[in-house]
């Protein structure tokens, strides 16, 4: 662990969006989309980020790659502040930190051919590759992501969802980035196709030494691609640790609830399986609960949870940090067997 080479550092990142406030009225508050998130990403590592809608995971993704600016806090790529960089530093950072978006149906311009879509990065960064070598590079990219290089002049609608996501991945890789933020890259795909895309991302990581921030709303895919996992709830990281710790011995009641909510793909014995279901929906991030934000849905909440906000700190094992006044110590009962 000591010689981990840090490529990305997210430091006390906050992103609030003001709400209300027409022309004449005062601001009425803010959506606290991301509220003090910190983590580091090592070279060749994958950090999985899991949470439900409104937890701020997509805002986090957009802020990391510079599509959005933080209200406070920093994102550093190899020590350079992403949001303070300018000139050559900014261009270098933009090349090196790329994003793959969730919906391959809306993230690709429908009026551009694959050739256009994949040469565009080189037009924005013309110094990366001389013009006469771009076409062969684009064909190579298609080959790398498992698409037929002869389909260069097709339009996005002529591809299936999985193939479109491969185009999105090829585009993200065009400028040979070091960090790729994947914002729910397989959520919109058919089950039988999801695994292909996950396997592709892993292979590319091995071959190209990429680091990933892999964002997802459910836990099942994340376990297989991540080295470490961060669980987010209403703008905060509530648990962060090695994947095995987070899945086998989740300490935060929210992490446990998320894991228990995942249906077990084994029909036999289902009647005798007990699980704790959370009540209600996540509260609004405009006016989050005081203290611990999860307390309104937490089965273990006590008065201290409303008064003092728990900070993320090492819990029962150094391999995971948890933000809870009453972290669980016991392993999660294995519901699925196997």
């Amino acid at each position: 662990m000591g010689e981990r080479e840090i490529v990305l550092e997210v430091d006390s990142l906050v992103r609030h969006f003001p709400v209300g406030g027409g022309l004449l009225s005062r601001r009425r508050g803010a959506v606290q989309a991301v509220d003090g998130v910190s983590f580091t990403l090592g070279r060749g590592e994958t950090l999985g980020v899991v949470g439900e809608s409104g937890c701020g995971k997509s805002t986090l993704a957009r802020t990391i790659v510079g599509l959005d600016s933080p209200t406070s806090g920093h994102v550093r790529y190899r020590g350079v502040d992403v949001h303070a960089a300018s000139g050559r530093e900014l261009r270098a950072m933009r090349r090196s930190v790329q994003i793959v978006l969730q919906d391959p149906y809306t993230s690709l311009n429908p009026r551009k051919t694959v050739r256009d879509l994949l040469t565009q990065p080189f037009e924005i960064h013309p110094d990366v590759l001389p013009r006469d070598r771009r076409l062969s590079r684009v064909k190579e990219l298609l080959d790398v992501v498992g698409l037929n290089p002869d389909h260069l002049d097709r339009y996005p609608f002529q591809f299936s969802g999985g193939q479109r996501q491969r185009i999105g991945i090829a585009r993200a890789l065009a400028l040979e980035p070091e960090v790729v933020v994947c914002d729910e890259p397989v959520s919109a795909l058919d089950v039988s196709v999801q695994a292909q895309v996950v396997n592709l991302l892993r292979r590319l990581q091995r071959e190209l030494g990429l680091s990933y921030v892999f964002i997802a709303h459910d836990l099942s895919v994340v376990r297989h691609i991540s080295d470490r996992v961060a669980v987010m709830y209403l703008g905060k990281v509530v648990e962060l640790g090695d994947r095995r710790e987070v899945y086998e011995r989740p300490q935060h009641p929210y992490t446990r609830a998320l894991l228990e909510a995942v249906p077990v793909p084994e029909p036999r014995g289902r009647a005798s399986r007990a699980r704790t279901l959370l009540a209600g929906d996540p509260p609004s991030p405009v006016d989050p609960p005081s203290g611990c934000r999860f307390r309104t849905r937490c089965p273990k909440a006590q008065s201290v949870c409303a008064e003092t906000e728990p900070v993320l700190r090492i819990g029962s094992t150094p391999a995971a940090e948890v933000a809870c006044h009453f972290p669980e110590q016991t392993p999660l009962a294995r519901l699925g067997g196997a």
Partner: peptide, 12 residues
């Protein structure tokens, strides 16, 4: 091909 939460598969 169903990813499971109770296993770590390097290749799905």
């Amino acid at each position: 091909s169903m990813p499971r939460t109770d296993r770590e598969d390097d290749e799905l």
